[in-house]
Design a binder for these strands. Sequence first.
DNA 1: AGAGCCATGTAAGAGGTTACATGATTAG
DNA 2: CTAATCATGTAACCTCTTACATGGCTCT
Lengths: 176, 176
Amino acid sequence: MAIEHAVLGLLAIEPRHGYELAKEFGPDTVVGDIVHLESGMLYAHLKKLERRGWIGSELEPQEARPARKVFSLTPDGEAELQRWLSEPVDKTRDIRLEFLLKLYLAYQSEPERVELLAREQQAQCEQFIESLEAQIGEEEDEFRLLVLEMRLAQNRALAKWLERARTIDSPVGAGI
Amino acid sequence: MAIEHAVLGLLAIEPRHGYELAKEFGPDTVVGDIVHLESGMLYAHLKKLERRGWIGSELEPQEARPARKVFSLTPDGEAELQRWLSEPVDKTRDIRLEFLLKLYLAYQSEPERVELLAREQQAQCEQFIESLEAQIGEEEDEFRLLVLEMRLAQNRALAKWLERARTIDSPVGAGI
DNA sequence: AGAGCCATGTAAGAGGTTACATGATTAG
DNA sequence: CTAATCATGTAACCTCTTACATGGCTCT
């Protein structure tokens, strides 16, 4: 699930407690603009990730406030994050959410990885474009043709955008 | 829910029983290529639509086979279908499913309506493009800019496709 | 005899959405 | 004093996915 991997990705940048993570998914944030997540669901996801052994938690007591539960990646969680990050999404519609999340997380923690990510996704996209062109050549029904043409137009636009995404600069403050 | 409206739309073309509808959503069909629906869920949707009073059913007994339950639109169902058909979808991602369903149903039962449907959706799309362009002008964060540019590219491709969709011919056999 | 079609469904589970629950602290 | 912030969650509900249940008929 993309949201849970996004949680892993944020915890990979630095360990955080639930409330801090919730803000990262809130309004007026990059992640929150890509995918919306209510705080209630976030806590449920954190519980699930902990059960799976991908994250661990440590209680950080405070005076006069509930203790913070600070989550961090386990080695298994790190491995899972790397596995997820390195595979392109296979459906076009997943580019809007899942791929953008991957790209953002890579951009934040390993900017040099962005180019590879975008290049691989672009390759996937162009392969799909070829298959669509082949289908269009054979299609006789007019409505089906229209549907295929929509998909083609969408994927061509995405491929072109991915070409541009490959050249994005490192975030300010990430250093070189 | 788009799927339920698609069921209404198919029943508007002609009354059918569940099994026939299921085939309409099956593999190698126009509707099935747009949205997938397992037969189990279809029966659940039919039950729900009947509870809401949008469709009614009549048992058609057969020799040596379970009786067919033939569904047809009620006046309320007809009104609901017209309401749904006449409003453009407001999120870009809904064009791939919900708008294509509207377009197909109009194409099948009222081909002269297709042009209006596509034109209104195109207007909606172009309005969104303008808003994106304005946001892009003000955005300073590089990653957010990239996200906005993706949305812009997608919507421009869709607007262009919608322009072409307006001119689709009536289906063969639908008469003049 | 076995596969697949006709025709109806139910059941279990996963996941999301929305709202509520708790309770103290700080800012206006 | 009131509202927002901090910080954790739970509960009810809805929807989709996947699989199963039933049982006779037709085609090869």
